[in-house]
Design a binder for these strands. Sequence first.
DNA 1: ACTAATGTATTAGTTCTCTAATACACCCAG
DNA 2: CTGGGTGTATTAGAGAACTAATACATTAGT
Lengths: 130, 130
Amino acid sequence: MQLRISLQDGTPIYQQIVEQVKYLVAAGRLKSGADIPPIRVLAEQLRINPNTVARAYLELQREGIVSMRQGTGTTVAEVKTLLPRREKLRLLGPPADGLLTRARHLDLSLEDVIALLRERDAAMHPESTR
Amino acid sequence: MQLRISLQDGTPIYQQIVEQVKYLVAAGRLKSGADIPPIRVLAEQLRINPNTVARAYLELQREGIVSMRQGTGTTVAEVKTLLPRREKLRLLGPPADGLLTRARHLDLSLEDVIALLRERDAAMHPESTR
DNA sequence: ACTAATGTATTAGTTCTCTAATACACCCAG
DNA sequence: CTGGGTGTATTAGAGAACTAATACATTAGT
């Protein structure tokens, strides 16, 4: 797993790791059940303290992205089947509300937001081969 | 303007002010051009330091919600006309991407997200009389 | 010009966040 | 049961965030 972190861009290291792993999972580059590098290995690779990696993994676990087991290692969790649909939607509520509120401030309509989402979504995974 | 802040809920005071003012504006309870209480007045009302209120107002100004002028006071800005449309959409990009990423993690489709947004939007301002 | 009201700037102290150093606990292959 | 590999816990220190105390600068009315 190849990650790239910057020590001076202001955003915390552990958060950079979280974001990049989340991206890899979302992009399908890390499949459910796949092994994530051990804390020490990734720490050495990135030249940072193991605790910082542990912090990142802990956050990923808290969000249900990965599953950690002492002695065994860390793997990508099977989010798809773990939560019922209504629970997933509940998790998505706050960020959705935040987006709508910001749009409202800017006097943009719901349809504007939806159009923006479609555009962004298309840009994120360009379903080229279909 | 009636605000309610909690000193021990963890979230910074200035941020609570920001959120509540943003809500009042979004809900139409504070119209464009309306006066916001002077820094000292609100500070005294909330029993906090004027600097904390100033910090909140500064943030609101930075986001284009209010307009401050020394000697005169602070008023609700006319967001609608201040920014060009493409700039508004640009501001909405990051939260939109964040929402899509989270949805992807949960294996929810774009259409699911859009449906959720419509639902939330309807709940936020229940255009009852239509 | 004066004055009262407003936002602005400087400084400081407390608390929280982030990272690290180090030691501990668990799991599994041999 | 032992050893190497794994995640976990404790402590500490540097830095940033938050709030406050206090003084300064600008505006508008008189």
